[in-house]
Each structure stands twice: as C-alpha cells, then as structure tokens.
Write a protein that binds this DNA or RNA. Structure first.
Lengths: 342, 342
DNA sequence: CGATACCATGCAAGCGCTTACACTTGTGCT
DNA sequence: AGCACAAGTGTAAGCGCTTGCATGGTATCG
C-alpha cells in the first residue's frame, strides 16, 4: 500500500508483447474487432484480461482526435430541474456508444466559460449548453474550435446556434392567461435573477405580455427575484405578501420556488388556493408530492434530453447541421390555482 | 459552419510561435508561472488569449501523469440521496484545484466495474466509491493500478480500503429501538435490494438486532425489497399492509421509499402516525417537505463529502495513507412516528 | 499455373504536452 | 578580473495510442 505501483499500469505494448502481436493489432482488436481474425483476437483479449489492461483515454484521444464524449454544462445540480432531462440525454448517448461529461456553472457566466474551456480541453466532441445567454468571447471560442454546440431548454430559431426546447415565454403567458381568467388582478411573481438567464427573463416577459393584453397595469405585478431554492422561494413569498394589498396569486419561475412559497404560505396560516393561489413551472416530481399538488407548466424533459442526444450524434456522424426543434409544454392545472378571493 | 475548422485548434506550439518563445516556456507559463519572468509571461499570456488556446487535457495527462481529477461513482443520480454529499465533495476538491468526474452505476456491480475502468482510463488520480460490496476482480484491478480509493457512505475499519461514513447498522438499530419503545410489535420494512448494497443490508441487520434484543420473533417483521423510488415505496407499502394483521409501523431503508409509503398511506385513507407509523433514513430535503414531516435518521452528508475530499487530497499529496473516519448520525424524530395503536 | 485481389498484420510516424538537461546570461563574491 | 552560482529559456525525448502504408500470405479467376 505504501510502495509505488509494483506492476506499473499495463500499456498497449505490454498486451502486444504478451499476446505476441504488434501494438497495431491490439489497437485494432479493441476498436475494430472485425478487422482481426478470431484466433488472434482471442489471444489478445485474454492478454488484456490477464493484465487488467484499460486503454489510456488521453493517449487515445490524442491519437484519434475523437473522444466519443459529449460535454454538458448545466446551471446547477442542486435541484431536480435538469436531472431528468440530463438522465434521458445520457441514456440516449449511451445507446450510441458515447459518454457524457457533466459540469455545473452555478448560474455564473464566468464559471460557465471556464467549464466550456475545460470540457473542450478534455476533448468533448460536442457540447450541450443551457440557454442562449453567453458572451461574444465564449461564442468566438466555440466557433474557433468548431465544436458543435446545441442549446437546450429554450427554443429560438432566430439564433445562429441550433436549439432544442420550448417557448418559455409562450408557456408562461399561457399560465398567466389562466391566472387572469380566474379573476386574479394583483399578481406576485417570484423569478430567478433574469440577467444571464434567458429562460427566466422570457418567462417573466410572458407574464407581462398576458397582463398587458388584459389591460392590467405594470404595477399590478409585484416582482421578486431570487436564486432557485426552496428556502429562497419561501423568503420571497413572505416579502411579496408583506403588503397592505397583497397579491391574490403568486406565479413562480419554477417549481422549486413554488414549493418554497407553498410552504411559507402554510406557515403563515394562509390556505392555498383559498387565500392565495400559487403556480410553478417545470413539473418536477416534487410538484405532485406537495400538498396540495402544484399547478404548473409541464416541460417534456425526457423528450428534450433524448432528442438533444439524437441531434448531436447525427451531427457528429456528419448527417448535416442541426436544426432547432420546438417541443410543446402544457398546463398542469392541479390544485394550487383557484378563483381569486373577493 | 459547413466547412471544417478554418483555424484548426491552436496548440502549444502555435502559442509559442506567436509569442516568440519555445513550447517549454509556454508550458511553464501555464503550470509554474513564477518560474518565468513577467515580461515573457505577459507576452505568452496575450498570445494564449489571442488564439483562444486551451491546453489539450489528454496530451497533458499523458506527459505529466497526473490529471488533478478525482472520479466518483455513485449508484444513482436520480434521487437526491447522494447529491448533497457529492456537491460538498466537489466544492472541497475545487478549493484544492481538483476536478470531479462523476459516473453512476445504476446499482449494478457490472456497470460499476466498467465505470471504474473508464474513470481510470480517463486518468482519475483517485476514486471515491460508495459502499464496500465489490468483486475481487475489481479490487485486484484497483490494486494493480494503485489508484487510491476511498469508500464513502459506510464505516468499516475492518476492511482494507479506508472508508468515511457512518455505522449504518447502529444508526438503524437506534431507530428501531425507538420504534419498539413506542410500542410497535409488528414492523414492516421496506428496503432496497440487499445483495450488493451493504448500506441496505446493514440497516436491515440493525432492525433485526433491535428486534431480537427485545424478544420479537423474526416473523414479526414483514420485509419487502424494492429499488429506491417514490413509486416503488408506495407499491411496497401497499403490499406490506395487505395483510390480515398489518404492521403498525413501517420502517423504510431511505427517505425516498418513506415518502412513497407516506403517499400510499394517505391514498389508502390511513392517518400517519395515527393508524400507522413510517420512518425513513438519510434526512434529505424532501423529508421536511412532506406532510407530516418525516421521522428519519440524519446523515451528515455535507461533512462526509467535504472530509472525503480532504482525505483524498492529503493522500495524493503524499501525506501518508488514509485512515477510516466515522461520522455520527442522529435521530430526527419528527411527526411520522407515533405510539402504536391498540 | 500465374496474375490479381484481398485480408491479416506489422512498421513507424506522429497526436500535444511536460520536463530533465543543457545552455546563456547576469550577479555577487574573492 | 575571474570565478561560482542562480535564474530564465531552449532542446529534445518521450507519454500511450491510432492509422496510413507496406508486406506477405491465401483465395479467386481466366
């Protein structure tokens, strides 16, 4: 345990020597087995087994200039927002023999830039990124290295980068329409910080649009921005309601915030949706678990992940450039949205 | 966009040429900046910037035989069990300039073996693994490559591999003692499948020990094994309760199962803890969010993650071998455990 | 039966980086 | 002035792998 490697990690050459063939043959056994005759292959494989050989990834990438790895950078792993989509993404990649490398940026543009560099350096053949907000420098870097990039969780065919996702603005507008239709006129909004988060800002815009369409003045909206977390959602809810004329409905930028709001409401002795309505966005598992179950916008995370993987794989196999794809969301009108109280 | 890389990824040499120095100097600027005089360094750095250069990780690993990367293989990313611990692990690693590479094994020994190989091939300097159950072949492989390994989520100083974690058996026994003290005599148990999961089997053992210590016959326990998921927890609960003489308390191997059980209970019209008590394990965030909040065993996930990182970093810096560390758990007696009904 | 084609394999040139060692200066000492 | 020494930089040898090309052997064909 103290001493250095007694058997200092077997290399291709060790395998070749043991099997009595050249390194080229061993390499071929591992990569294109059908180009090697069975008898030789068996000999090589048993040498591999015997030595406990595992190819050095770096060396392989260096020589082959392909890693079969796709990088993904998500804003956070803390909550479940991206988990399901990423899981599906990974599964689909696995089907095509590719591996996923995940990094998280903590919603910071700078961290994301670093992560992008890191993943590229690690030889990611392509990248999955969330949202469009990104500095020109980063864009240039990606362009210069000509790494295929797919942007997910948003849909915007106008951007040069292909994207797969949904129309955050329209989805949230639809929810806002419903809220307004239920008679709510004073609307609280708890959103993630909008700078450098186009999903959040688009969703907010959706609410504004619906309100404007129904002649509600801009100041009928009480907005509070806070990072995604249950605690923050609860705190924001308290602040939004701390008003002589509090909103009758609080729309949250995602389910995590909404669950926090819901909890705060209960602690404050408010009945939901009797006293105040609360809505979410994403439809994560938690949305159905809370009591009452959350009215929210369902996002097809699994489909998005799966299709993202397919697009990327296609592109890597030279099947032409990617086109943006728009997926549909739909309202899950569960039990936290009710008629506005008088 | 259609054409191949117009500027085909800058290399060290390109930077060197542009800056008018040798590749060695550029390399030193990047790795040991203080060994290069400032004027040169500035010139090099601006060349790096101008070219958008990012060192090729594979090449670097190949040449330096160190990657500053630590691999972790967790059974699942699906639920939050490992999320918090891993997050803390990553944060601490970041403080020491190391990167984390995560893979998940889906609770499969075979997948885990593959992942171990993959991470080693990728040059992981050390590995964080969950639990001790592992085939001899895998152990030999690790031994042969002399990759430092730290086992987490369990504590067992008797094993050759160092571990950091808690005594799953004692923790669960303590919970079982409490359940028995509350008068429960017929106990349902919902556990993860115990083969190749020593955390699950130890927890189960803890319950058995407590029952034996109080003279409860083995058949007073109704056991149901099922993989961790809320749905499975609910289904298992229905089965466990489907009995002419159902248990008065159901102990779950973790919180995810317990939340499922709780939901099933509510759907069956049972009051918790009036009609039946339910306990969990882990104290994930969800445990406090459900209604009523879950009685469970608190596990110091963040501490565990942080200390795991420290141990590994120490070891890599040659500060001697790692010693196993035991952390304390404690009971969170919230509201789902009550006095046994008559 | 010789020519042709093809298949399995070996040879050897890198892939982009680090680092031991060599070299060139500039400094402080005698 | 002459020396040892240190600091800054360059030279070049690999790290472990893939792959284009060369080679020799066997099957196929007229």
């Amino acid at each position: 345990m103290t001493a250095k490697a007694p058997r200092p990690v077997p290399t291709l050459e060790d395998v070749a020597r043991l099997a009595g063939v050249s390194t080229a043959t061993v390499s071929r056994c591992l990569n294109t087995p059908d180009r090697v005759v069975k008898s030789t292959r068996d000999r090589v494989m048993s040498a591999v087994e015997q030595l406990g050989y595992a190819p050095n990834f770096g060396a392989r990438a260096l020589a082959a200039k392909r890693t079969n790895t796709i990088g993904a950078i998500i804003p956070t792993m803390e909550n479940a927002i991206f988990a399901r989509g990423l899981q599906a993404f990974q599964e689909e990649l696995g089907l095509h023999g590719m591996t996923l490398l995940v990094a998280s940026s903590s919603y910071s543009e700078d961290v994301e830039r670093e992560q992008i560099r890191t993943l590229c350096a690690r030889g990611a053949d392509a990248l999955l990124l969330i949202g469009h907000h990104r500095s020109q420098g980063t864009l240039d870097f990606l362009e210069a290295r000509s790494v295929p990039v797919l942007v997910a969780w948003v849909y915007d065919p106008a951007k040069p980068q292909p994207s797969i996702g949904f129309d955050n603005r329209a989805a949230m507008r639809e929810m806002a329409e419903l809220v307004i239709a239920k008679g709510h006129r004073r609307i609280g909004v708890i959103s993630a910080p909008c700078d450098s988060n186009d999903r959040a800002s688009e969703r907010l815009l959706g609410i504004r649009e619906a309100m404007a369409a129904h002649g509600l003045p801009a100041d009928a909206m009480a907005l509070h921005e806070t990072p995604y977390s249950i605690e923050n959602g609860a705190a924001a809810f308290r602040q939004v309601m701390d008003n002589s004329d509090p909103p009758t409905a609080v729309m949250c930028g995602n389910d995590v915030l909404a669950v926090g709001a819901l909890r705060a409401a209960r602690r404050m002795g408010l009945s939901v949706p009797g006293d105040v309505s609360i809505t979410g966005f994403d439809d994560i598992e938690l949305a159905q678990l809370v009591d009452p179950p959350l009215t929210t916008v369902h996002v097809p995370h699994r489909d998005m992940g799966r299709m993202a993987a397919k697009l990327l794989v296609q592109q890597l196999n030279g099947k032409g450039p990617m086109a943006s794809i728009r997926l549909d969301t739909y309202l899950c009108d569960r039990e936290t949205l009710g008629i506005a109280p008088r």
